[in-house]
């Protein structure tokens, strides 16, 4: 642990990231360029989130890392271990106990509090990137608030499929100004983006940081006749019976049988510990 500075990054790098975070908070949803460093883990594996967490952590923090909603996915384990080793912070799997949560692809089911911070790992921060690959162009579009292309894309979906066919990384408008990529969370999580906690987004490879302060208006793009819909698998969790949580589908045998379980493993555990049961746990509980 003593071989590296607290939280791995050198102080000058942390200052550079911290300045970017402050500007990100001051202009919600705007992507601040930052000189992302080469981290000892691959680009695309959370280097942006790791850098933002490293610049934000204090030794008093309790740190939680989730990937796909779960604490024990291999990359979450790996990132948690990195900070245990380099920052010596306490870690937890309990959302309730965490002061800083780094996430990939999910927002926890439990409502986050004022005193919590959530850091998202972002692969492609530019919501317009798949419509226009050039940074020089998309930057212009943001500056002119020219988001017609995005609406055209969503509308083409409707005319072709009868519904908007974006199911994750669903674009939002932040505080009535910038269209933002909420990272590849399922659109089920979009309504949670208006929250009490501070939200920070880090894209390492693409060298961007952005932020959503607490209580900021975050609107999922939609149309009057095709309103945004936060969807999930139409099942309760087979382990805890939750009807309100996002579910993973698991293939359980060679015949292709399925079961549905909470993607947020801590949420599921809490519910089971409180005595809730699902289809697959009823017999055991009885």
């Amino acid at each position: 642990m003593s071989e590296y500075n607290f939280a791995y990054l050198d102080e000058q790098t942390k200052r550079m990231i911290r300045r970017a975070i402050l500007k990100g908070l001051a202009v919600p949803g705007y992507q601040v360029p930052f000189a992302s460093r080469e981290m000892p883990m691959p680009y695309g594996w959370g280097t942006g989130g790791v850098q933002v967490s490293a610049a934000t952590l204090t030794p008093d923090d309790t740190f939680k890392v989730i990937d796909q909603g779960a604490d024990d996915t291999t990359n979450a384990v790996s990132i948690r271990k990195f900070f245990e080793n380099t920052a010596g912070v306490e870690t937890t799997e309990e959302t309730e106990k965490a002061s800083l949560i780094q996430t990939r692809h999910r927002i926890p089911e439990a409502k986050l509090r004022e005193d919590q911070i959530i850091v998202y790992q972002v692969p492609i921060p530019e919501p317009l990137r798949f419509l226009e690959p050039r940074e020089t162009e998309t930057r212009k579009m943001h500056s002119l608030e020219e988001y017609g292309l995005m609406h055209v894309k969503l509308y083409e979906d409707i005319s072709q499929h009868g519904a908007i066919s974006t199911s994750y990384a669903y674009p939002v408008k932040v505080s009535g100004r910038y269209v933002m990529d909420p990272s590849p969370i399922p659109k089920f999580d979009n309504p949670k983006l208006e929250m009490d906690a501070i939200q920070l987004f880090g894209a390492g490879r693409e060298q961007r940081i952005y932020a959503v302060p607490p209580h900021t208006k975050v609107v999922s793009l939609d149309f009057e006749d095709y309103p945004f819909e936060a969807t999930k698998a139409d099942h309760p969790c087979d382990l805890c019976g939750a009807e309100d949580s996002y579910l993973d589908e698991v293939i359980t045998d060679d015949a292709g049988s399925r079961m549905f379980v909470c993607s947020d493993t801590d949420y599921c555990r809490c519910r089971r510990e409180a005595g809730h049961t699902g289809r697959m746990t009823k017999d055991v509980a009885a």
């Binding site: 691959p42 680009y43 695309g44 594996w45 280097t47 990937d67 796909q68 909603g69 996915t73 990359n75 990939r104 692809h105 999910r106 692969p123 199911s167 994750y168 990384a169 590849p184 969370i185 399922p186 659109k187 089920f188 490879r205 969807t231 698998a233 996002y246 579910l247 993973d248 589908e249 993607s263």
Partner: peptide
């Protein structure tokens, strides 16, 4: 890095698709 990251779990996004 970005190429190989697609072997990481994406089942949340895949589920929504």
């Amino acid at each position: 890095g970005f190429l190989e990251h697609i072997k990481l779990p994406h089942y949340v996004d895949f589920q929504s698709e």
